[in-house]
Amino acid sequence: MGAVRAKRFLTGLMALSAAALGWSLAASPALSDQTGSASGLPVPRYVSLKSDRVNLHEGPSKDHRTIWVFLRAGLPVEITAEFEIWRKVRDSEGTEGWVLHSLLSGRRTALVTPWKKGVDSTLYDKPSTQSATAAILQPNVIANVRSCDGAWCRVWGDGFKGYIQQSNLWGVYPNEKIE
């Protein structure tokens, strides 16, 4: 199997595995060698919303119809494409559209288990399930990501801080390391 075919096969296999676990279907940055045409940054990548009111457009201009309005500052979104000052984004539910780049922040945030409605997640004092419980977080809580080692992320938010298993977050890629 050629190198390109092997990479496509592995990317597809990881996408299927990620889908089964409720993660984003986009390729992991480790497997993607694409960069944004406008920013030069990796695509796809996660960012967060700067404002508590962000219009999601059908296409990359204000002339395109607004298809959704995000009302939650700090919400993580995944940039999947770039066109001049516009970024195509996807949210945790798969909704896609275009937003102005000035409404996005490089600050990393993540949603706690948005795919597990009604099932809380444990935040630990240390990166171990044997550690003391720091908090219990409900699905869709926004957590600020301080660091990730590929298995655990150190997060904080309004009234909580600690470690959560990386697989319980939407807004970081599987095995992604953040310092």
Rank of each mutant, 00 (worst) to 15 (best):
T66P: 00
I85K: 14
R154I: 00
I142S: 07
V155R: 07
I79W: 14
R108K: 09
D149N: 15
V119M: 12
N175W: 10
E176C: 02
A135Q: 10
K177I: 10
P114W: 08
N175H: 13
G59Q: 08
P60A: 10
E93N: 13
E84F: 12
H101S: 15
T133K: 15
E58L: 14
G106K: 12
H101L: 09
Q166F: 00
V69H: 09
A81D: 08
K117I: 11
L123E: 09
L104T: 04
W86A: 04
I164H: 05
L111Y: 15
W115H: 06
T80S: 10
R65H: 13
W115F: 01
P76H: 06
I79M: 13
T129W: 06
S128H: 09
I79H: 12
S92I: 01
L169G: 11
D149R: 12
V172K: 10
W98C: 00
P127C: 07
P127K: 02
Y124R: 13
P76Y: 05
R65F: 10
D158S: 14
K117E: 13
N140T: 15
V77A: 07
F83D: 14
Q138P: 04
G159L: 06
H101V: 10
P127F: 02
S105F: 00
L71E: 14
F83C: 07
R65S: 12
E176L: 04
C153R: 09
Q130D: 13
E96G: 00
P174Y: 02
A143W: 04
N140P: 00
L56T: 03
T113R: 15
P60N: 07
L104F: 11
Q130L: 09
S147A: 14
A143Y: 02
S61N: 07
E84M: 13
R90N: 05
G159D: 12
R72D: 06
G159F: 08
S131D: 06
C148D: 03
L71P: 00
A151E: 13
P174L: 06
